[in-house]
C-alpha cells in the first residue's frame, strides 16, 4: 500500500494515477477483510475500487490526461506538512493496540449493541442492525449526502445537454464525485 501511495504522488500521467488509486482501494479492502470488517471491505471494493475509478476516468475524459508541471519544493509548507505528519505519527503511538480488549472503543456502546441487538432488532448481522436501526438517522444523512452529490453534479454539468453551455468549471468535478 505504501508503494502505491508513493508512486501515486510521483506519477504525472493521471490515467496511471487513477489506476493506482483503484489498486490502493483494493489493497485497503483486503486489509479490512484481514481485520474482519467485511462490510467495510465490501463497500471499499465496490465504491473505492469500482465506481470512483470509472468516475475519475470520466473526469479525465472531460479534462486532461497529464498533470501540470510540478513546482519546486517550497520550504515553509513542506516544514508544516512534515511537522503535522510527525505529530500525527507520534499520536498513533498512544493508540491502543489492534484488538486490545481494554481499548475505549470496546467499552462505549459496543457491548450494548452486541448483547442486545439480537433480542431488540433481530438480524444476525449486527452491522446492519446498528446502521439501519440504532443509527438510522446517520444512515439517512448519508443517503441525503449521496442524493445531494448527484443533484450537485446535475446542477453543475447536467444542463449542457439542453443546448445551454455554461462555462466549463472542470476543477469542481473531481471534488464532487469524491463526496459521492
Amino acid at each position: 500500500m505504501a508503494v502505491t501511495a508513493f508512486s501515486l504522488v510521483r506519477i504525472h500521467n493521471l490515467f496511471a494515477a487513477v489506476m493506482m488509486l483503484g489498486i490502493y482501494s483494493l489493497l485497503a479492502a483486503v486489509l479490512y477483510v484481514v481485520m474482519d470488517a467485511v462490510d467495510v471491505a465490501f463497500t471499499e471494493a465496490a465504491v473505492g475500487a469500482g465506481i470512483s475509478t470509472v468516475l475519475m476516468l470520466g473526469t479525465l475524459a472531460l479534462t486532461t490526461r497529464m498533470d501540470k508541471e510540478a513546482k519546486p519544493l517550497v520550504p515553509v509548507p513542506l516544514a508544516i506538512v512534515t511537522a503535522t505528519g510527525a505529530l500525527l505519527i507520534y499520536a498513533t503511538l498512544d493508540m491502543p493496540h489492534y484488538g486490545d480488549p481494554g481499548a475505549p472503543i470496546h467499552h462505549h456502546v459496543g457491548p450494548y449493541y452486541i448483547e442486545k441487538s439480537a433480542s431488540e432488532v433481530g438480524p444476525p448481522n449486527i452491522v446492519t442492525s446498528v446502521l439501519a436501526s440504532y443509527r438510522g438517522y446517520d444512515t439517512l444523512g448519508e443517503v441525503t449526502v449521496v442524493f445531494t452529490a448527484a443533484v450537485g453534479v446535475m446542477a453543475l454539468i447536467g444542463r449542457s445537454r439542453r443546448r445551454k453551455k455554461p462555462d466549463p468549471k472542470s476543477e469542481n468535478h473531481g471534488r464532487k464525485e469524491q463526496q459521492a
Partner: peptide, 18 residues
C-alpha cells in the same frame, strides 16, 4: 444506484456536448 447511474450518464452527456 440512481445517483451513480445519473452521475455516469451526465458525465457522458457533458463529454458529447464538448
Amino acid at each position: 444506484s440512481g445517483a451513480m447511474i445519473t452521475i455516469f450518464l451526465i458525465f457522458d452527456g457533458r463529454l458529447r456536448a464538448e
